[in-house]
């Protein structure tokens, strides 16, 4: 996995609350954050060489690299916090789908370009508001990663948001495809704001922001852009979930098979 910044493996980890419950909650939280980005980054990388125009091909690859870079930092920190001898590479390449903790939203196949940019927009806005809170975490390693990721994510929101407006408020076909992507993706958005005992343990310790404060801000910005795109927010309904506990769609296993084949075939390969 590319290393855009110094790896945190090997450095002492200042977990403020040293009790094992908080520590294991933090590991779970870092896996959630890291896996979301690794899986979405991989999905975006599937556009490489297939973008609608050269400039957008490069833009998607840039965003993919940003996300994989964030994942590398987060998974390294997860491994160091876990302190069980696994680094970011081991977590990325040697876990099965059932051990991945990403939301289902990010693992769905890349679809058409409208699907890709709508998903990117829905995810990036949520990521932005969540990272804003995490940047103030009392866990300084995590706060540092969030501050770096926040700048990247701000651009992702801008880029994907522009496309949602252009495609939604574009031709009949681009409008129909974008609305269809939004309709198909909406039921996967609730999982981004789902909270459980992991969040409760960390929010109480001042390590991460309360996701319930992120959701209304996400909805306000998403609604604004969707309306400017002349699209319609789907009616509230059942929200899919399961990724945070390892119950994934069939798509993740197939994606991981491709992503992990080199390490699985040639364990420890370096180049």
């Amino acid at each position: 996995m590319p290393r855009p910044a110094a790896s945190s493996v090997g450095r002492p980890i200042a977990v403020t609350a040293s009790d094992s419950t908080t520590r294991s909650a933090l590991v779970q939280f870092l896996l959630r954050l890291g896996d979301d980005r690794l899986v979405l980054g991989h999905r975006l990388s599937e556009w490489c060489g297939h973008g609608p125009i050269l400039e957008e091909d490069i833009a998607l690859a840039n965003i993919a690299l940003d996300l994989v870079g964030q994942a590398a930092l987060l998974l390294d920190l997860a491994g160091a916090t876990e302190d069980a001898g696994r680094d970011g590479d081991a977590l990325a390449y040697l876990r099965e789908a059932i051990d991945y903790r990403n939301v289902l939203l990010v693992e769905l196949p890349k679809g058409d370009f409208a699907f890709t940019v709508v998903r990117q927009f829905l995810f990036s806005v949520a990521a932005y508001y969540q990272l804003e809170g995490i940047a103030r975490s009392t866990q300084t390693d995590l706060a540092g990663i969030a501050a770096k990721a926040l700048k990247e994510t701000r651009y992702h929101v801008r880029h994907a948001g522009e496309w949602v407006i252009k495609l939604g408020d574009g031709t009949d076909e681009s409008h129909a495809r974008t609305q269809s992507a939004l309709d198909g993706l909406w039921r996967y958005t609730g999982e981004m704001f789902q909270t459980d005992a992991v969040d409760a343990a960390l929010v109480g310790a001042g390590l991460v922001p309360d996701l319930t404060t992120v959701e209304p801000r996400w909805l306000a910005q998403v609604t604004d852009v969707i309306e400017r795109a002349t699209l319609t927010i789907p009616a509230a309904g059942y929200m899919q979930r399961g990724g945070r506990s390892g119950r994934h769609t069939e798509h993740l296993g197939i994606m991981l098979a491709e992503m992990q084949i080199l390490q699985r075939s040639y364990p420890g390969a370096k180049w």
């Binding site: 400039e55 957008e56 840039n62 522009e162």
Partner: peptide, 20 residues
């Protein structure tokens, strides 16, 4: 140079292609 439909896209494309 870049292709783009408007100034904002041109700016973003320029950033992604030439200033990353």
């Amino acid at each position: 140079s870049v292709h783009a439909v408007d100034a904002e896209s041109a700016l973003q494309n320029a950033r992604d292609v030439y200033a990353r």
